[in-house]
Design a protein around this nucleic acid. Structure first.
Lengths: 245, 245
DNA sequence: AAGTGGTCTAGACCACTAG
DNA sequence: TAGTGGTCTAGACCACTTC
């Protein structure tokens, strides 16, 4: 009998998936759905909210609901970390962002006690201190990734790693100079919905998950020297890993 | 003035994140929130829905709303690489999850034309045919992953790969026998919200993203011989990749 | 039978956007 | 200023779970 929000959402979703409604196109608004299906405004709104939570649409208040545009950045893990790239003063970022320039904003560098999870990964004593590099990566004025690196403070305190500008080659070149060159990396990742705070920091629209990555950098001897915790806007990234059997 | 759904949700979320409300514990229901905050039932319900869409809670109709339990399966992509030197056991999420038995259900094997995306990855002519192995992986009676493999039909049609039972060593052992042993793999992955259909197939609760992985298997010569498209319940998995610089 | 979430109607007020 | 989404109240009926 009743037309449900689910049914209205499915009809619109079908139009989006089939390509009939193109990315960026405006979807019918609440009043239009009320007229067409004879439902209450709240039901029409719920239908649109369903599309948003399924990642198919974005809403701009005062303007309308639009088909979502997915134009991801490709993050190639192996390429980024390949040895040849470090020594040449080439930045890790920029290589795989394609044509779109990525910039670092809100960089903060400071020293503090290591959080428990990081202490575990870095094999630190309880309460040991770390140098923390906290930053936000932005593409076309939109934040796409928050990253926070932890390095043993006793190891890197005197190096450029503890400065805002780490110099040519970045953190990894400095670690190599300290005799703890990272040669292997472990990435642990999971996808989940962001907290309210994380949504705000990455300007996420509802229906966008985040990918949380912990990357541990290890020396030849297997000593962990850096942990980088990244939070990626899942709507902005595709990740690639190359594995040799 | 008014107490918003967001504020009620934040208060509950704080209790969950602090550990005060433990995984599996029951949260106050709609009537309790109505009494405590003096809001309408719909507002209380919206507060609980916010927690669900943020992945912090699950709802069981007729029973209640509960703090979500995250006990992930660890998927190590580089299974075949030596475990040494990568530092044992140091992991962020649930080192405990070792040997929960995983079973294959709903296996279907058939031949069809390759979809466009797969044809691209497999380097096939338009309309070329593939053998498709479609299956669901289940842990403790709950589906956690849907996987669908595509292999060039001309190559594998006569082998056990086209049978339900691929025999000892599975698909890769049969490919090796055919002289196209996969030795390298490329995995492309993204996280997104599931469609309504996908939610149903993987029994996902709202607020659970999926991880979509395309894995291409390549021979020594670089010829792609299999594409496996996996859809993982993001609430059930942690992924691990090991990268050598 | 009582309690819980699921969904809907009907109507209200607000804030933001666009022309 | 008209249209849009954002959020709320108030009340209704249903299906499911638990005891």
């Amino acid at each position: 009998m009743a037309v449900t929000a689910r049914e209205i959402a499915d009809e619109l979703a079908e139009g989006i998936r089939s390509g009939e409604r193109k990315p960026g196109a405006r979807l019918p608004g609440e009043p239009a759905l009320v007229r067409k299906h004879g439902v209450a405004k709240a039901t029409a709104q719920r239908a649109l909210t369903l599309l948003v939570t399924e990642g198919l649409a974005v809403q701009h208040k005062g303007s309308g609901t639009y088909v979502r545009d997915f134009q991801p950045i490709r993050r190639v893990a192996n390429q980024r970390l390949s040895q040849e790239r470090w020594g040449e003063g080439r930045s890790i970022w920029g290589a795989d962002v394609g044509q779109r320039p990525m910039s670092v904003t809100d960089l903060r560098v400071y020293e503090a006690q290591a959080p428990d999870d990081v202490a575990l990964l870095l094999d630190l004593e309880e309460g040991e201190r770390v140098v923390i590099r906290d930053r936000l990566f932005t593409v076309e004025s939109e934040p796409v990734q928050a990253a926070i690196s932890y390095l043993p403070a006793d190891l890197v305190r005197e190096s450029a790693i503890a400065q805002e500008d780490t110099g040519p080659g970045g953190t990894y070149a400095r670690l190599a100079e300290l005799g703890v060159k990272p040669v292997r990396f472990v990435e642990e990742l999971r996808a989940r919905m962001p907290s309210h705070e994380e949504s705000g920091r990455l300007h996420l629209t509802a229906g966008t998950p985040v990918v949380e990555i912990y990357r541990t950098a290890l020396t030849e001897e297997g000593t962990p020297v850096e942990v980088n915790r990244m939070l990626l806007d899942a709507g902005a990234y595709v990740m690639e890993y190359r594995i040799s059997g």
